[in-house]
Amino acid sequence: MGLNVSNLTIARGGIKVLEGLNLSLAAGQALVLRGPNGVGKTTLLRTIAGLQPPLEGDITADPETMVYAGHADGLKPTLTVEENLHFWASVFATSNIDAAIEAFQLDALRTRPAGALSAGQKRRLGLARLLVTGRPIWILDEPTVSLDVDAVKMFAETVRRHLGQGGSALIATHIDLGLPDAQILDVGPYRARAMDPDDFDEAFL
């Protein structure tokens, strides 16, 4: 039950950004994506998560095993922390939110409306959603944005525990998460080459 990506070419706004990309992720593994801003990490993660179709190549993974967390946390400001988590729990047909609340130390905030949380607390709540879904493959886009040092440790600890339970994680990040076993993939070399301008046909370029 892993994730395999072979010879993947992806586009953003109709323009190829990455091509010929291969990666694989087995149970218990973490893979950290690196690369300069705008190289296409977010597009890659969205493609793998199934939000957009790839131009070429294959992604073999059961979509029912993946959970995606992007730049936005998907929280409703007028719902409380508990209500937000309960909602995602029932969407993913699970029920236990206590483990998630504990892992990200949200216990004191349970009945606080999400709109009244600080940016870092919101992010913690957003990450707690991952645990609630009960899915093994985490696809995370810059998960540590607006987290303080302690919260980053909290997150790294959670990822380690998740890997220990046979889960896996694909993470785009710029900071060192303190995951010694994580593999690192620099997507820079896969940057798409521009095509010959005279050779335009279906794609106009």
Partner: peptide
């Protein structure tokens, strides 16, 4: 609103 706060992305990748 669901689009702005990212819920729509998350719902689209959910089992629904």
């Amino acid at each position: 609103l669901d689009w702005e706060d990212g819920s729509l992305d998350l719902l689209a990748t959910s089992p629904l």
